[in-house]
Simulated assay, not measured.
Amino acid sequence: MDGLPPGELARVAAYFHVLAEPTRLQILNLLREGECNVGQLARACACTSANVSRHLALLAQHGLVRREGRGTAAYYRIADSSVFALCERVCGQVAGRRG
């Protein structure tokens, strides 16, 4: 982060903010297995479709997922798989600090 201008730091902070919500992390983890539509994700997350749609919109806004319309359904998939390396590193650090 050395030398990043304030505008870039704000974008980095927004990216981490998106990842700081458990349901969004769960959605990313589900999409890691392959593309899904909103209904499938809602059932898997035990959330409403509206709630999942809001999370997906935010994930898409930050370039983490990509939406593809097919007929009346929209399917989502991971757009930036590098997020998993970041999540695995953080999860490893958090797990190492337990107990």
Rank of each mutant, 00 (worst) to 15 (best):
7 G>T: 12
59 L>C: 06
77 R>D: 09
29 N>S: 13
79 A>T: 07
65 V>G: 08
42 A>T: 08
83 V>T: 03
47 C>R: 15
23 T>E: 12
60 A>H: 10
25 L>E: 07
59 L>Y: 04
56 L>C: 07
47 C>W: 02
1 M>Q: 12
46 A>I: 00
34 G>V: 08
69 G>I: 03
9 L>K: 14
44 A>Q: 07
30 L>R: 05
60 A>M: 11
74 A>Y: 12
13 A>R: 15
19 L>V: 01
60 A>T: 10
25 L>G: 04
78 I>G: 05
19 L>I: 01
69 G>Y: 00
62 H>E: 15
10 A>L: 15
7 G>H: 12
75 Y>L: 04
98 R>A: 09
65 V>K: 11
61 Q>T: 08
27 I>R: 02
66 R>E: 12
58 L>N: 09
75 Y>H: 08
92 G>L: 04
18 V>Y: 01
51 N>K: 14
49 S>C: 06
63 G>I: 04
37 N>R: 05
4 L>P: 05
67 R>P: 13
39 G>N: 10
2 D>G: 06
86 L>K: 02
59 L>K: 02
43 R>I: 11
73 A>M: 02
12 V>D: 00
3 G>I: 02
63 G>T: 02
49 S>P: 09
3 G>R: 10
62 H>Q: 14
97 R>F: 12
82 S>D: 13
47 C>A: 13
90 V>R: 04
95 A>M: 11
1 M>G: 14
2 D>R: 15
8 E>M: 12
86 L>G: 02
36 C>W: 01
94 V>N: 10
65 V>W: 08
12 V>P: 00
60 A>L: 06
68 E>L: 09
74 A>S: 15
5 P>K: 11
25 L>V: 10
